[in-house]
Design a protein around this nucleic acid. Sequence first.
DNA 1: CATACCCGTGATACTAATACCGGTATAAGA
DNA 2: TCTTATACCGGTATTAGTATCACGGGTATG
Lengths: 91, 91
Amino acid sequence: MVRTPLTPEERRRGERLGALLREARGDRSMVEVAAAAGVSAETLRKIETGRAPTPAFFTVTALATALGISLEHLAAACAEPTTEDDQALTA
Amino acid sequence: MVRTPLTPEERRRGERLGALLREARGDRSMVEVAAAAGVSAETLRKIETGRAPTPAFFTVTALATALGISLEHLAAACAEPTTEDDQALTA
DNA sequence: CATACCCGTGATACTAATACCGGTATAAGA
DNA sequence: TCTTATACCGGTATTAGTATCACGGGTATG
C-alpha cells in the first residue's frame, strides 16, 4: 500500500469539518460562499457533506476567510472529540 | 479540463508555506517532526521543498501543532505577498 | 400551466497528495 | 577509512481532492 486509505476516524473528522463549515455558512448560499472562497460550489458541497474529508489547506483557509471563522477554531473542533467538543457544533 | 492544474502562483504559495515550516522546524530532524505530526518524512520533505504545494488541511494542522506554530500565522504569511511579508522568510 | 432560475446532487475526468523504494551526497563519529 | 545518520532526489503506486457535465426539485414569474 503506497497511500494509506482514509481511516474511518479521518472520515469522521472530515464530517465534523463539513458540519462546522455548513453551520458557519448559515443562510448564505453555497454558490455565494464558494465564489467568495474561490472554489467551485460542488467542491464546497463535497466538503460540507464529508465526501471530501481531507480538503487542501488553502481551500479550507479560503473558506474560513469567506465564512469569517478562524482556522484554529476549525482545527480544534475537528481534532479530537475525546472529551465533549460537541459544544462546537451547537455554538 | 476537469481539475485545474496548479498555477505558478499557487506553487509559489506552496514554496512559501514550505519555507515557513522548514524555518519553524529549526534544528529538529525531518523524521522527528514528521513522526510527531503523523506523516511520512517524504511527505514533509515534499511540502518543505514546495513539491507538494497544496497539502491537506489536516496535514498542515498536524505539522503546525508539532512545530508549535499557529495556523493563522501560516495562512497569513502564505496568503499574499502583496505588501512586504517577505520578512517572514528572512526572519 | 410552462418556463426559467437557483439550489443541491450524482456521475465522470483528471490532477495532485501521500507513501514506499532505491540511490546519492554530506557530515559526524568510531 | 568505514559506518551511520540526515537530507535530497527520482521513480512508482494508489487514493483522494477538485472541476465539468448532466439531472432533479423547488419557487417565482410569465
